[in-house]
Amino acid sequence: MQRTEGDRQRRQNLADISTGHAPRLLPWTTDGGKPCLLSTDDEGGYVSRLADQMEDVQLGMGTEVLKHALEVLSDPKAAPGELRYAGTRLAECLKDALRVAESRGMRLPVSDSEEGTESPTPDAEASS
Rank of each mutant, 00 (worst) to 15 (best):
Y85N: 11
S119M: 07
A79K: 02
S128F: 10
G6V: 10
S113P: 01
T121W: 11
Q12G: 10
E43P: 00
E55L: 07
E115D: 08
V100F: 03
L90A: 08
G44M: 09
A79E: 10
L108N: 03
Q12A: 15
A101D: 11
I17L: 12
T117G: 01
A126G: 06
T88E: 15
M61D: 07
E125A: 14
S48P: 00
A15K: 01
E118D: 12
L70D: 06
S74N: 15
T88M: 12
R84V: 08
L59N: 04
S127Q: 09
I17A: 14
A79S: 11
R104K: 15
N13F: 10
E82V: 00
G32H: 11
S127V: 13
L66S: 09
L98D: 08
G87I: 03
G105C: 05
D112M: 09
A69P: 03
R99Q: 13
G33N: 05
G6A: 15
D31T: 08
E43T: 14
L83M: 12
G87W: 04
Q53A: 14
M54Y: 05
G81A: 13
T63M: 08
A15H: 05
L59V: 13
T121H: 04
A79W: 01
L66N: 01
A69W: 01
P122Q: 06
P76Y: 07
D52F: 05
G116S: 11
K77G: 01
A124W: 09
L90G: 03
T29H: 04
H21T: 05
D52H: 11
A22P: 00
A126P: 06
L73S: 06
L108I: 04
W28M: 10
Q9K: 04
H68C: 03
H21N: 14
D41S: 09
S48N: 04
A22F: 13
T29Q: 14
A69S: 09
Q12M: 15
R84S: 09
R99I: 15
A78V: 03
D123R: 10
L90F: 07
W28I: 13
S103T: 05
L94N: 04
G6C: 01
K34H: 15
L50K: 02
T121K: 03
G32R: 13
T29R: 13
K34T: 11
G60A: 13
L26I: 07
E55N: 09
S111F: 05
V65P: 02
L108S: 08
